[in-house]
Amino acid sequence: MTEKPTVLFVCIHNAGRSQMAAGYMRALSGGAVDVLSGGSEPGDQINPMAIAAMAEEGIDISQAVPTLMTTEQVRESDAVITMGCGDVCPIFPGKRYEDWALTDPKGKSLEEVRPIRDDIKARVEALLAELLPAKV
């Protein structure tokens, strides 16, 4: 693994789950991890409920833009975390892959998005502890 690990978070629309995970990783790692996110079919905008749920945590993801996940992003990442994108993510031998089974926040109320957000936070904290064991 490189000196500064790179993590790629991927979900279909890159508008909710992956953006919340990326927001947490950026905030909790304090810049010690390079964070990428993308989607297999990027949406038009970030889910407003995801923005609101993260704002409650003091993390602003409102300026994020859904982007297409690229093979290059996967190649340069030490860990690739997928969130319901199925078989669309390219696989490279030797990479760390995890698929986090998370409910899609699309169309959900803020009350319904909060538990998804909290699940993502716990998973990001656990991943961060593995990536940077001496820093946590």
Rank of each mutant, 00 (worst) to 15 (best):
T2M: 12
P5H: 08
T6F: 11
L8K: 09
F9Q: 07
F9S: 10
F9V: 11
F9R: 06
V10Y: 04
I12C: 13
I12M: 15
H13V: 14
A15S: 15
A15N: 09
G16C: 11
G16W: 02
S18G: 04
Q19C: 13
Q19M: 12
Q19D: 12
A22Q: 03
Y24K: 15
Y24I: 14
R26E: 15
R26H: 14
A27M: 10
G30V: 10
A32G: 12
A32P: 11
V33C: 10
L36Q: 06
S37I: 03
S37V: 00
S37D: 13
G38S: 01
G38Y: 02
G39T: 00
P42W: 03
G43I: 13
G43W: 13
I46V: 15
I51E: 04
I51N: 03
I51V: 12
A53P: 12
M54T: 09
M54S: 10
M54W: 07
A55E: 15
A55I: 11
I59M: 08
I59E: 06
D60K: 04
I61L: 08
S62Y: 04
S62L: 03
A64N: 15
V65F: 08
P66G: 09
P66C: 11
T70I: 05
T70H: 02
T70K: 05
E72W: 04
E72M: 05
Q73M: 15
V74E: 03
R75Y: 14
E76S: 15
E76G: 02
S77V: 07
D78V: 10
D78G: 14
D78P: 05
A79K: 00
A79W: 08
I81T: 05
M83N: 10
D87F: 07
V88P: 00
P90R: 13
I91A: 00
F92I: 07
F92D: 06
P93T: 05
G94M: 01
R96L: 15
E98R: 12
E98H: 14
E98Q: 14
D99N: 14
D99R: 05
W100S: 06
T103W: 00
T103Y: 05
T103F: 09
P105M: 08
K106L: 09
K106G: 09
K106S: 10
K106M: 08
G107C: 04
S109P: 06
L110C: 08
I116Q: 02
I116R: 05
D119L: 08
I120H: 02
I120D: 05
K121D: 06
K121V: 01
A122F: 00
A122G: 09
A122K: 15
A122W: 01
R123D: 01
V124P: 02
V124L: 02
V124W: 01
E125V: 04
A126Y: 00
A126N: 07
L127F: 00
L128E: 08
E130N: 11
L131D: 03
L132S: 00
A134V: 00
